[in-house]
Nucleic acid binder design. Structure first.
Lengths: 221, 221, 221, 221
DNA sequence: CATGAATGAGCCTTCATTCAT
DNA sequence: CATGAATGAAGGCTCATTCAT
């Protein structure tokens, strides 16, 4: 939004990163060529090397930055609320919102880990574990507090993350559903599953009560 | 039909397919080289072309066969039971079991669609839609019958599929959990979500009893 | 024309030769692949080897047969007439007629000599020299007899052959000109050149007289 | 403009073109490999691609430049003289001299058109037609002026061009005949043909005297 | 910073040919 | 005769990367 006086728009480095993420999303890291990246940025291939050391470095930096941002933003969201249920809802909402806004980064960080060299792979996997640990801890707290009922919080965490991350593969900003709709529906699924319960007997009028109430009426969220 | 281990052995074509799927899983389709495939199969690279026309053809055939098998097996599983809930459970179980057993195929079919040429891509996407449609129809039936409570069965289907498919990325046959455990836990998550309810331990009336009852304490983990 | 009772149309070998000549004409010998030849003949590539030993052999045989036929036919034409001028006219006519009827053979024999192995090349070049020698001898006879006026009969022979052979690269049976037109015009060029002489002062009515008269009225030849 | 032998040397691009033309002449375009070209230029095969986009591009550029040079040089030669006969002689002389000096280019432009892709083929054919049109126009003028006697100037043009171009396939600078000899003999053939006429030794009036007189006894051969 | 030219490794693919069946 | 499968060589081309300018 704000532009520093004297700056001339995005720097070349930033452009390379932005276009690089898009190309990785479009073609995959292996299939994206630096020639293509250079062409789209308006440089000769050789010039890219003034901005990163190797193609691998570019990938690592993109994913690394993404993971750190995700972690920081998640921490901020979790610290803003108290109680396992509120925090679970906050986690779900934050994860979805972040993923729907940064599709390119998310793609690289989820589907291109395979292309990371061993050392870089370890770094990213560690950050990923950190992130998963936040959800696991949260689920553990909920189970311990009797609010959640899960036989294996690790598996549940993986399942929830897979479900939520999957949303960013089909979500389109210009589509039928708002981001809030998506958040509401996935929150409901995570908390209540599909089954109609006595709390929701005639599915289309009754509603959940209290903090856990799924916001079924899309668009009213 | 059945092939005894140690018998004369699979044909060259079958070996190529099997090794190809593994290499795609290990390196990704773009990064897998036909030289490597040939070497692992014990052929010269040129000899591969007696068994497929192009690398793209190999990928397409592998994915195509996978999708048709998945659809056929899913149909068989769904026709074996009646009632939306039983069918949902059957769908979940079948999807998970198939995906845990055919990790290589599943990987290719889910993460390498990007590498398919437009025409081939359309064919696979159509089959994929067919498969999703089975779940959506099933969810629609459940909602119509008052057994399920879902504001948007399309989104729910995508979410469920993402969750279930995700399991095959971390599941290891030699791991802590049996396939049955994985099926049970995901079935529970799909049906009931995470939330502990007063009703859950003693579980959901008569209608959900028997095989439909989620076995929440698997593995005592 | 005649078909031996019990024969079943052209043999496979003959088909291979015919299609081979066409493909050489269309793509050039190097660019023509035996796969393509096999496909057009309706065989597997390996089956071709029941009909020739190597691709080189095929080329050599095609050119060799062509050269022998050309020589034989040329000799027949030359023996039918007497006198250098009549023979020159016969040579020109025969060369053109043969070349316009066997475009594929002529192409191979003129433009694919480069692809012949040394030994085969020598054989064909020798036949070619034989053929050229007939024209040179003929021109020498004409010069000796005072009927022709040429400072160098070798060069003249090459020039005449180049001119005549060139006709087969543009001649099309369904075109504007009949074969006889083509023969008449080239005979005139060879004998008289372009220049209007006192014998043809008002070019469009006057005509050459005697045996050497160019048959300028196309279609009346 | 002029480059002294032994000077710093041609640029890489020029070397590639020169060697490329030679290799095309020696092996034919299809049979010439870029590996071979690179080796003779002293580069790695990949480095060639800094100088042209594809092998096809190389061929097209070589032929295209040749055709444009030929057209320009031909126009210059024709504009230097007046009158159909003088111009015809100028055309013949220019064509022969150019073709005897640029055998490699001429070979590519005449015998490798087949290897051009459709689009490139059309471009070259159009230039070729332009060139032919100059000769045809010239012949038409001569016929209209009563100086030439030709029933079909198109066919005559093709025949003349085939004859002249043929000379470059056997001409060798170190051979028995000088370029001038070759020009003189072909000029005579084009104008007068082979036939001895009463008028020829004392040759064709005043109008054909001087430089236009064919030097029939070149080399005393 | 940017570039043109070079590199070496490697890619998918095609080729003519062989041979057991 | 015909074939399917295999082969070894080679093809044009792309790639990430380097380096002097």
């Amino acid at each position: 939004m704000t532009r520093v006086a004297g700056s001339h728009g995005p720097t070349t480095a930033a452009t390379i990163r932005r276009v690089g993420l898009r190309l990785i999303h479009e073609h995959g890291f292996e299939a994206m060529s630096l020639r293509q990246l250079a062409a789209e940025v308006g440089l000769q291939p050789a010039s890219l090397y003034n901005h990163f050391a190797t193609k691998q470095d570019l990938l690592f930096n993109l994913i690394h930055d993404h993971m750190r941002t995700l972690l920081a933003q998640s921490d901020a969201a979790l610290h803003a609320v108290v109680g396992p249920l509120h925090r679970l809802r906050a986690f779900v909402a934050n994860h979805l919102l972040y993923h729907m806004e940064k599709k390119h980064e998310v793609f690289a960080a989820n589907f291109e880990l395979r292309s990371l060299e061993a050392k870089n792979h370890r770094v990213i996997i560690a950050l990923r574990r950190d992130y998963e640990a936040r959800l696991i801890t949260l689920l553990d707290d909920g189970v311990a507090g009797g609010m959640l009922h899960l036989p294996d919080t690790h598996i549940a965490a993986y399942a929830i993350l897979a479900m939520l991350t999957g949303a960013c593969t089909w979500y389109k900003p210009e589509g039928r559903l708002s981001k809030h709709d998506v958040v509401a529906m996935h929150t409901a699924l995570v908390l209540h599953g599909c089954l109609a319960s006595e709390h929701q007997p005639s599915a289309h009028h009754a509603q959940h009560r209290g903090q856990d109430r799924p916001q079924h009426r899309l668009g009213h969220a």
